[in-house]
Design a protein around this nucleic acid. Structure first.
Lengths: 148, 148
DNA sequence: AGAAAATAGTTTGACATCAAACATTATTTT
DNA sequence: AAAATAATGTTTGATGTCAAACTATTTTCT
């Protein structure tokens, strides 16, 4: 039997605990959907660049919930794979503005269907209202945590 | 201005994205509460051992949402810090059963108040019902993801 | 009973992430 | 205008985690 009946004691039903477990499982599942070719968080970076052309690395990093420095090797690889372009910003020579390439767009398009399908199973499994409520609460939670 | 008005495109409000961002923030906040002395996930391991004495490493790992192998260095450190005891199980010489020490109990007790206080601010911020709903949905989500 | 498969804990190697320190460029202060 | 402060991208070092391979045991199968 693989029945998991351990007690979490004081941590029982605390959001931090459930968040970590849920996130771990979700990341694993999304990674499968992405064919193991790109990490969920890295896919997010790509999407952010595609939807917000001309933004700086710092802005993208912040939106992705990652450290600036963590982006560097990822972007380097994206560039090497011809998924994005990076050029020094005219007005600020420290910054580099980034844009998606046509290959990048193709790459994204390749997985959008599967990702949406996965999300649809979550919507179906939780119920539409609950799914919406869950993202809403997660966003609200982020607001709360940012304020501390 | 630090206004974060980037578009997440197709990922907007997807649970995977919000989960990852929320989890990152929560882990950071809990780490602060724990005085930077122990990672949230490691504290969970300790709590699990305290509340489920005599369990094997594998069971604890699973309940904590971590890989078996990830536990090894953590437990080694816990042992060195006299927070837990590990002894070979009588009935299964592969297994090691673990118990919390009195120092371990003290360690837990030291942070219980602060952790509960943090959770209380989340309950207050989200509203009691929403907080309960959030953990419930996170648990439900885990069930869904495990079934895939 | 003996062989085969499964399980527990561990080690090793790869990699993602963060934090701090750094150089360069912008902005703010004086 | 000069000096101090802040911001951007980067490098480096440390650490946590996973996955795969390994040993030792246990369980299952025949």
């Amino acid at each position: 039997m693989t029945n998991n009946d351990l007690s979490y004691g004081m941590l029982d039903k605390m959001v931090g605990l459930e968040l970590r477990k849920a996130q771990s499982l979700a990341a694993q599942t999304f990674l499968q959907v992405l064919g193991g070719r790109i990490l969920p968080g890295h896919f997010t970076i790509l999407i952010l660049i595609a939807n917000n052309p001309g933004q700086s690395q710092s802005r993208i990093a912040k939106a992705a919930g990652l450290d600036r420095s963590s982006l560097v090797p990822v972007l380097k690889q994206f560039e090497k794979d011809d998924l994005i372009n990076r050029v020094s910003a005219r007005n600020d020579r420290r910054s580099k503005t980034m844009t998606i390439t046509s290959s990048g767009k193709k790459f994204i398009k390749k997985y959008t269907g599967e990702i949406q399908k996965l999300e649809d199973t979550l919507i179906e499994g939780l119920g539409k209202d609950n799914h919406a409520k869950l993202s809403e609460l997660l966003i609200q939670l982020q607001e709360l945590l940012k304020k501390r």
